[in-house]
Nucleic acid binder design. Structure first.
Length: 305
DNA sequence: GTTTCCGACTGTTTTACCTCA
DNA sequence: GGTGAGGTAAAACAGTCGGAA
């Protein structure tokens, strides 16, 4: 399902990171952004709210519900956080211009009134407000801090809800199931957006690092080509000291044993055998200053002892 | 007045299930 | 009985709107 798709996307990005971590020498990535599991960006700030039930006990809530039903005619269009009408008569009586539009649009009307949620979603918040306002303005719901906290908690457990969970959560929060559903949809969307931003930033840094690496290698290549054209210059240069990878066998080498390093001249110490070998070489293209580290590791790979 | 956040909406896609030839 | 096509409902998504802070 869609969750799997998101997981796939996440795993792709993780795999990319894993690949980068597997070969850090090539990418040199130490700017790994943390994975967003619960971003502070999603922590809703404290807000003033008009949700009257947020601090009520269940018994108080029942009283409040009764009060709400009783005073509904006065409150409709004012308190959009109100629990929807409970009776079938009330439910049937709520019909907004938008619900008409929804029914025109086909399946939408069916979706808004799932059988499993029939007692909680007969009317949308928009329907209530529109019904009362007489205009098309929406009444904006602001969830209370407690409601947001509970929703966040629930989202951490599972970022999708089955109808049972949705109903239970809606009941617990005093919201319509549709509101819970919308909140989860928006939450998933924003999580995905946040993750996309993180992934984008990560890839951007990868790109920057690779560009820099490419620039460095191009520069080295130029130096090597220049040296190739002037062997007499090579003779005056310090010998190679390091290497990250042997171009012939593609093995990554470690620094050579201490006994092979000539500290006086900052170069690998030549044994009698390889002294002759090195003398026979016209020049060493791996001996640029930039490649000293590379050459040292190369020497470790192929000790001439 | 502008910006940002986020609840709510619409239209589309995906998935599961059912019916029928 | 098994199977594929077509239809339908539900869920989820992308994109957007607009109220509120």
């Amino acid at each position: 399902m869609m969750v799997e798709k998101e997981e796939l996307g996440l795993s792709l990005s993780l795999n990319f990171r894993a690949a980068a971590e597997k070969n850090p020498s090539s990418l040199q990535l130490n700017l790994m952004p943390p994975l967003v599991t619960s971003s502070p960006a999603f922590n809703l700030p404290n807000r003033t709210h008009n949700w009257t039930d947020s601090c009520l006990s269940s018994s108080d809530r029942n009283t409040a519900d009764a009060f709400r039903v009783e005073t509904r005619s006065f409150l409709k269009g004012i308190d959009v956080n109100r629990i929807p009408p409970a009776t079938a008569e009330e439910e049937a009586g709520v019909s907004s211009p938008n619900s008409t539009i929804s029914s025109i649009s086909g399946k939408r009307s069916e979706r808004d009134l799932p059988v499993s949620e029939i007692d909680g979603e007969r009317s949308s918040s928009r329907g209530i407000s529109d019904d009362e306002d007489g205009d098309n303005s929406r009444k904006k719901l602001r969830l209370s801090k407690d409601q947001s906290a509970i929703l966040e908690e629930s989202f951490k457990d599972h970022n999708t809800l089955n109808p049972k969970q949705k109903l239970a959560l809606a009941k617990r929060l005093g919201l319509r199931p549709r509101q819970v559903e919308v909140w989860f949809q928006n939450r998933r969307a924003r999580t995905k957006l946040k993750q996309t931003e993180v992934d984008c930033e990560f890839l951007k840094r990868c790109c920057e690092n690779l560009t820099e690496e490419n620039r460095r290698l191009q520069k080295e290549l130029q130096e090597l080509r220049a040296l190739k054209l002037s062997p007499q210059f090579y003779m005056q240069m310090a010998p190679p000291t390091t290497l990250t990878m042997c171009p012939s066998c593609e093995r990554v080498g470690a620094p050579p044993p201490e006994k092979f390093i000539d500290h006086q001249h900052n170069r690998p110490r030549l044994t009698t055998a390889n002294q002759n070998l090195h003398r026979a070489l016209p020049f060493n293209p791996w001996s640029t200053p930039a490649n000293q580290v590379v050459q040292r590791q190369m020497s470790a790979l192929h000790p001439r002892s």
